[in-house]
Amino acid sequence: MPSKKVLIILSDAHSFPLKKTSGPDAGKVVDQPSGFFLQELAKPLQKILDAGHEVTFASPQGQKPTPDPNSESLLAYAGNFYERRRENDLIERMKRENGFASPRPFKSISDEELTSFAAVFIPGGHAPLRDLGADAELGRILRYFHAENKPTAVICHGPYALLSTKMAGDGTFAYKGYEITSWSDVEEKMMETMWGGEVEKVESALRNEGAIMVEGVKEKFGGTTLHRELVSAGNPLAADALGDRFVKMISV
């Protein structure tokens, strides 16, 4: 299969807003550390590279990406030290070979250059809640892939970035009526209990804009949802399946 170019969208944020509901900061909005979720980036990325494709990383301002601390814990890998090391090694290689440490600012990617990309991928982690959902330049980029029916993959909190399409073009949500799976409200409420605060809900935000949210047992345990050019998934358990389905879409 001939090599194709895949654009990978990252957040510049190192935290996201958490409205505290308990403790000494109750009523205040605090910065909760976050970034990209390691497994949700590394697993699809490895499959894209194994298929022989070229990747380009981009973010709002081109700042150095930060991993979500929770995603680097051994708990997140169910104690599998070797898997965690492999995925950290992959990111280190991307820093050396693919400009991961200094992504392309969205504005630097012209409409003409966008035509050279075959697909786009947005990993999760809570960071997209901070800076991707309302980014007009990202909205322009995603509207291109949508209009051209080019493979688009999103996972966990990554689907929140789709809301950026409201900031570009005619101001409408480009994925209205699409079936989408994301990190669910139920899963987020579990995190809220742990953090003692409230978080913007990806599932509700997309549903409120007209997306048809697909959530259930299958999606909680590694299932993916495909609608037209968009493949989506809800959590790290689906990262491998998302990568496989995305690579197949690229090869068509």
Rank of each mutant, 00 (worst) to 15 (best):
P2T: 09
S3P: 02
K4C: 01
K5P: 00
K5D: 07
V6G: 00
L10R: 04
A13K: 01
F16W: 11
P17S: 10
G23P: 03
D25Y: 12
G27R: 03
V29Q: 09
V29E: 13
V30T: 11
D31M: 05
P33M: 08
G35H: 11
F37V: 06
Q39Y: 00
Q39M: 07
E40T: 08
A42F: 04
A42D: 02
K43V: 15
K43P: 00
L45M: 12
Q46A: 14
Q46H: 06
K47C: 02
L49Y: 04
G52W: 09
H53D: 10
E54T: 14
V55W: 11
A58V: 09
P60C: 10
P60D: 14
P60W: 12
G62K: 08
G62T: 07
D68T: 05
D68R: 04
P69A: 06
S71D: 04
L74A: 02
N80F: 01
F81Y: 07
R84A: 07
R85E: 15
N88A: 13
L90R: 03
L90Q: 04
R93M: 12
R93K: 15
K95G: 06
R96H: 04
R96T: 08
F100N: 02
S102R: 14
P103F: 10
P103R: 11
S108W: 09
I109P: 08
I109N: 12
S110H: 09
D111L: 06
E113S: 09
E113R: 07
L114I: 05
T115F: 05
I122P: 02
G124D: 02
G124M: 11
H126V: 08
A127S: 10
A127V: 13
L132T: 10
G133R: 10
G133C: 03
L138H: 12
G139T: 12
I141F: 03
R143V: 06
Y144F: 15
H146P: 10
V154T: 13
C156G: 12
G158H: 09
P159Y: 05
P159I: 04
Y160H: 11
L163D: 03
T165F: 11
D170K: 08
F173W: 11
E179G: 13
V186C: 01
E187V: 03
E192P: 01
G196M: 08
G196I: 08
G197Y: 06
V199Q: 01
E200L: 11
N208T: 07
N208P: 01
E209M: 10
I212R: 15
I212K: 14
I212N: 15
M213N: 10
M213C: 07
M213Q: 10
E215Q: 15
V217M: 05
K220E: 13
T225V: 14
T225K: 06
R228H: 09
E229K: 06
V231K: 07
S232G: 08
A233E: 03
A233H: 01
L237P: 08
L237I: 02
A239R: 04
R245P: 00
M249N: 00
I250F: 00
